[in-house]
């Protein structure tokens, strides 16, 4: 039994070590002074601050970072607002078309973006939104996941609570804003986090709809970064590191909500 415990601990440390090895390699190469050592095993000095300074001093990385932040925070907030309203209404209010809407939302969960990007691009083109922020932002603004997440969570709000508010003469919108939203807060934070992380990593849509470098978010910028920095591996790695920092900060701050979002489909229902 004792030997088993030791074996298990050794295996875990080795396995988690291997899982962290590429992250460690990223840190090492991103801190290198040049491209002479790309093994990513031993620190060759620590030039990370200089490398970051170099990327922020000139070049487009600050633009990509700004665009990604606008994209992810902007659509994240909109997704939270619209999904909160729709998810709550679908869980707690009776109104015409509720069933149809639910079927529509659930149906979209099965669709792959590979089917939708072509017609959505044509719609965006028709709207004159190619190469604009709204073209990048609006089509991915609301997710079926978000509406569904809030609805499932809102089903847990006690009916008596809403009924009591109605008896007291509170209007439906007031009940939503004052009673439902505070109760839904954990679900809304989870939704914002999941949305932010997914959007932060969205390469396909901006690649299709934004040809102008001024509009590129980080994933598209990274895809072209090698040629931008003259095929400098260590600077490309520094840029990858910069890209990984905001999701990392959010994860540390909101770890509980992150796990809740990941396991939503696995544990509930």
């Amino acid at each position: 039994m004792r030997a088993g415990t030791i074996l298990r601990t050794v295996w875990l440390i080795v396995a988690v070590g291997f899982m962290l090895l590429p992250v460690y390699a990223m840190l090492v190469v991103a801190s290198a002074p040049d491209d002479t050592d790309l093994r990513g095993l031993v620190f060759n000095g620590f030039h990370l601050p200089e490398n970051i300074g170099l990327l922020f001093g000139e070049g487009n990385l600050p633009t990509y970072l700004r665009n990604s932040l606008i994209l992810c925070v902007g659509t994240g907030i909109l997704d939270v607002i619209f999904s909160a309203a729709a998810g709550y209404a679908m869980a707690q209010l009776s109104f015409p078309g509720r069933r149809v809407l639910f079927a529509l939302v659930i149906g979209t969960l099965a669709l792959t973006p590979m089917v939708l990007v072509i017609p959505v691009f044509l719609i965006v083109k028709e709207l004159g939104w190619v190469n604009t922020f709204q073209g990048m932002m609006v089509p991915g603004m609301i997710s079926a996941f978000g509406v569904f997440l809030v609805r499932q969570f809102a089903l847990g709000i006690p009916k008596e609570l809403l009924l009591a508010a109605r008896v007291d003469g509170a209007g439906e919108f007031r009940i939503f804003a004052r009673i439902a939203v505070p109760l839904l807060k954990p679900a809304l934070i989870t939704l914002f986090l999941v949305h932010f992380l997914a959007q932060w990593d969205n390469l396909l849509w901006p690649l299709i709809v934004a040809n102008e470098q001024e509009l590129w978010p980080l994933p598209v910028g990274l895809a072209n970064f090698q040629s931008e920095v003259g095929f400098n591996y260590h600077l490309t790695t520094t840029a990858a590191l910069v890209t990984a920092v905001p999701p990392f900060i959010l994860m540390v701050a909101l770890q509980r909500y992150y796990v809740a979002g990941l396991t939503f489909g696995g544990l509930k229902r």
Binding site: M19, L20, P22, V23, A25, M26, V29, L38, G40, L197, W200, D201, L203, L218, P219, L222, A223, F225, Q226, Y233, T236, T237, A239, A240, L241, T243, A244, P247, F248, M251, Q255, Y258
Partner: peptide, 18 residues
Amino acid sequence: MIPAVMPLAATSMVWVII
């Protein structure tokens, strides 16, 4: 959680170097 939260775009660039 660290590898799990790494963006795929950043991960890909790191693996190009690996």
